[in-house]
């Protein structure tokens, strides 16, 4: 769980950092050709990183859902447990089974 939380935090932090980086990189201050071109490429790579991080965040939610769905213990009401029959039910069943058996056994 803490693993997920830290992953979440890290991703959000990284996302913001990358966004900030894009803003910083988009300034044009007496920079050389080379620097400018590298920076423009870096802007693009930062954009892709943002997308990737967003996808990762989605996977975090998916993991959460999965572990929630798979990790929950079923609470079954003992009164409604389908595997538990009351005596009356069992007797009823007994009679019915016997009736069925008799009916089948007797030649039509």
């Amino acid at each position: 769980m803490s693993n997920l939380l830290s992953k979440f935090d890290n991703n959000v932090e990284l996302l913001l950092a990358k966004f900030q980086e894009i803003c910083t990189l988009s300034t044009v201050e007496n920079k050389d050709y080379e620097v400018q071109s590298v920076e423009s490429l870096q802007i693009e790579s930062d954009g892709w990183t943002i997308i990737r991080i967003a996808e990762e965040l989605l996977s975090v939610t998916r993991t959460l859902k999965e572990s929630w769905i798979l990790g929950q213990a079923k609470n079954t009401d003992p009164d409604k447990d389908p595997n538990d029959f009351s005596d009356a039910q069992l007797y009823d069943l007994y009679e019915k089974v016997n009736r069925l058996l008799d009916e089948l056994a007797s030649d039509a």
Binding site: S26, V28, Q36, S40
Partner: peptide, 10 residues
């Protein structure tokens, strides 16, 4: 030029 490039990448 830098402005153009950056505008493009943005």
């Amino acid at each position: 030029a830098g402005r153009g490039w950056k505008l493009q990448s943005l």
